[in-house]
Structure formats: C-alpha cells, structure tokens
Simulated assay, not measured.
Amino acid sequence: MRANFRLQRLFVQDDIRPGTAVPVDDGQYNYLHNVLRMEDGAELLAFNGRDGEWLMRLRYPSKKRILLEPVELTRPQPEPCDLHYLFAPLKVGRLDYLVQKAVEMGAGVLQPVLTQHVQGKIGSIDRLRANAVEATEQCGILAIPDVREPVRLVSLLEGWDASRRIIYCDEGAETNNPMSALGGIAEKHLALLIGPEGGFSTEEQTLLRGLPFVTAIPLGPRILRADTAAVAAMAIIQATIGDWH
C-alpha cells in the first residue's frame, strides 16, 4: 500500500493502540504547534516502526501539551528491509546525505565500517539515527533501520555470517558492467559495502577478494564519489536481485 503524502507524518516512540492516546515530545510539540500551527482536531499520520501507520487526531489537553488519538490503521507494519549497508564514514554533510539515501533505497541496517583509508568519522550515532528517522518520515517508510556502532573492517569480516553475501564496488574490475557478477548471486540475504573516498587499501582488497561470501562489482567507466557510488550500487542491486521486482 502506497504512502499518503497529503498528511503530515510523525515518528513516535510509544506503542500505538486503539483507545490509547500517544504523547509527543517537546521538539515535536514545537514543530506541530509553533511551526505547522496545527489546531485541536487536526489529523496526521504516525508510526513507530512496530505497529504500522495510523491516522491520528491531534488533541490539546493543555496549552503546553499535545496528545495524538489513534483513529484507524492506514497501513500495516511490513517486514523490515533486509539489505545491510556497510559504509566507511564521510564528512558530516555528505554522511547525512548518505544515510538518508540509504534509508530511501531500502537499507534495513546501517553499519559504519572503519577502513585503513577512512577520512570521515562518526561523531554521533544519535545523529545518524535521527537522520534515518527523518528519512522514514519524509519518504513514507514504516520500518526504522537498525543503526549500529562503528566496527573495523577486519573485525566485521571475521565475525560475518557467510549466508549473507557482501557485494562491494571494485574500481579494478576488468569490466564496466555489474550485471554479470550480480546475475550469479543466489543468496537472498545481501549486504553492500562501500569503501572510503581514498578506496580500500591493498591489504583490504586482498582480504575481500579472498573471501567466498564476497562479490566484487564495477560501477561503470567513471570514478564516482563514495556517496554517489552508494546510491548507484543500491539501485542496481535492488533492481536486479533485491526487492524492487
């Protein structure tokens, strides 16, 4: 069922149940009351990543408080997105963009990965999570991605579940077409690994190429920035072996 973008969408922390009003936090109160100037009885959509999307009616029990009354379920909660997105951190502005686009493209897990040539850093996991939630609000997505703590690439690979294939972008591939490599993948559970702007080190390339659960793909004849490569790779994966079909 498609999202309804005519109504304001809001992520809430509390359970959503018929007959039980849901409070909003101070930031949401300011946004609904002072920015949007929503009046008592106004309607909006709310979701929490667990109970689906609900039509809610806004109520003011006092001047400084807003409650949301569940009216009806508009969309049931879908299965969480299964694509894992593994990425080397970028500079803050581009990192925000990267997280938002990954959520829009169907990433269910966001895993920062520390590589030898990484140039950015994760200043705040809470900021990443807030960006992920904002992306779900804006794009009609109901499942909230799992944003994980950064981990070193070697440690990640050592503990990896081999039933989930990792696809990574390799600038040194002999071809420019990723379709042949993707066409041979039989696994249903997938992860996409995007390296830093400086690329993977020689040691990391050797490690990745030697693992049976890792597949390297090219992204065409042009050199792409890391955030551009992430969007391009996710689009190709979702269209060929992901959930778009």
Rank of each mutant, 00 (worst) to 15 (best):
E104H: 06
F47Y: 05
M38I: 04
N48S: 06
Q111C: 07
M56F: 00
N48F: 07
L86F: 02
N4Y: 00
A88S: 15
A135V: 04
L86I: 07
L68H: 04
L36K: 00
A232I: 01
A233Q: 04
W54G: 02
S201R: 07
V109I: 10
Y85P: 08
M234Y: 04
S180A: 08
A132L: 08
E149N: 09
G210F: 04
P178L: 12
S155I: 00
P112L: 01
T206P: 01
N4V: 04
L58P: 07
L68P: 10
L192Y: 09
E203G: 11
A3F: 10
C81D: 15
A132R: 03
L182S: 05
E104A: 04
N30E: 01
G172H: 14
Q100M: 15
P218Q: 12
V22P: 14
F213N: 01
Y85N: 09
I217F: 10
L156N: 14
T206F: 00
V231T: 14
N177G: 08
R222H: 12
L95T: 10
E39S: 13
P89N: 13
L190H: 01
G195K: 07
E43C: 12
E79I: 09
R129L: 15
E137V: 05
K91D: 09
V147C: 14
L68D: 03
L114V: 12
A233L: 00
R65P: 01
E204C: 13
C81E: 15
I141D: 15
P218W: 04
R50F: 03
L153A: 12
A42V: 05
H33V: 09
K63D: 04
M1S: 11
E158V: 05
A135K: 01
E197Q: 12
P221E: 12
R209M: 03
R127S: 01
H33I: 05
A216H: 02
H84N: 06
E137P: 11
L86P: 06
A102E: 13
P196C: 11
P78V: 05
S201P: 14
E104Y: 06
A132G: 08
K121N: 11
A216N: 03
L55T: 04
T206S: 01
D40W: 03
G242T: 06
G140P: 11
N131C: 13
L192M: 05
I241H: 02
L95P: 01
P80F: 02
